[in-house]
């Protein structure tokens, strides 16, 4: 398996983390996203005409888009069928709903991060930050009531899903775009729980959480 990858990309990190959780070995093929702009070069555009990372190649099958790759990997390699519950229509719908929410987080929090960190000066950073806060208010409320109902994860059920993976990176990296998580305590607690999923890995900008009480 081969992943077209960039270390500082939260979307690529979703795939690296999930592959590690599933225990799948893969080759990293680094693309010089910045400053090289290699993802907009002819060689990479032949692989993905959208010029976006990540792209996964599994044997002869090739697939782009972080959320699509997560659902492909879960459906194919998660033997327990818990990460992407294809046999439970309601949960499956929920997972897809929150995966789309994860995409909106990319469109806002990640955009603000690109503006501040990689000088994407064409981005309207004020609007991007306001958009991120609007989403985080929704997610924090959702997770606060989930805690009241005894749930740990974004979607119903006792185990995490790929919706948790899809939302996690750009929330953790939000401060790099000037978006503080101070107003979202339920989100902050949830990020600790994600960090304690067996097989969790870090990327540049995200630290691990230390052991939870259960493991003590």
């Amino acid at each position: 398996m081969k992943l077209y990858d960039f270390e500082l990309s939260g979307n690529c990190y979703k795939i690296r983390m999930f592959l590690n959780i599933l225990g799948i070995n893969y080759d990293r093929h680094p693309i010089d996203f910045f400053p090289g702009n290699e993802h907009k070069g002819p060689e990479f555009l032949a692989i993905n005409p959208l010029g976006q990372l990540p792209v996964l190649v599994d044997g002869t099958f090739q697939i782009r888009d972080a959320q699509a790759i997560l659902s492909y990997l879960a459906a194919k390699y998660d033997d327990g069928g818990t990460w992407y519950p294809t046999s439970d229509p309601e949960r499956l719908g929920e997972v897809n709903q929150w995966m789309a929410f994860g995409d909106m987080i990319t469109g806002t929090a990640s955009a603000a991060r690109l503006h501040d960190g990689l000088s994407y000066t064409q981005i309207d950073v004020k609007a991007a930050r306001a958009g991120a806060h609007r989403l985080f208010r929704i997610l924090d409320e959702h997770l606060w009531f989930a805690e009241r109902e005894g749930r740990s994860w974004i979607c119903k059920g006792d185990t995490p899903t790929i919706a948790d993976i899809a939302c996690f990176p750009y929330i953790m990296l939000a401060l790099e775009g000037g978006v503080s998580l101070q107003d979202y305590p339920a989100i902050r607690r949830w990020t600790d729980r994600v960090k304690r999923i067996p097989g969790f890995t870090v990327m540049s900008g995200i630290f691990s959480a230390g052991a939870g009480v259960e493991a003590a």
Binding site: E7, D32, S204, G205
Partner: peptide, 13 residues
Amino acid sequence: RLFQQTILGQDKP
């Protein structure tokens, strides 16, 4: 370059 980008990305937070 990527190695140094990883390092600087870790210092950022």
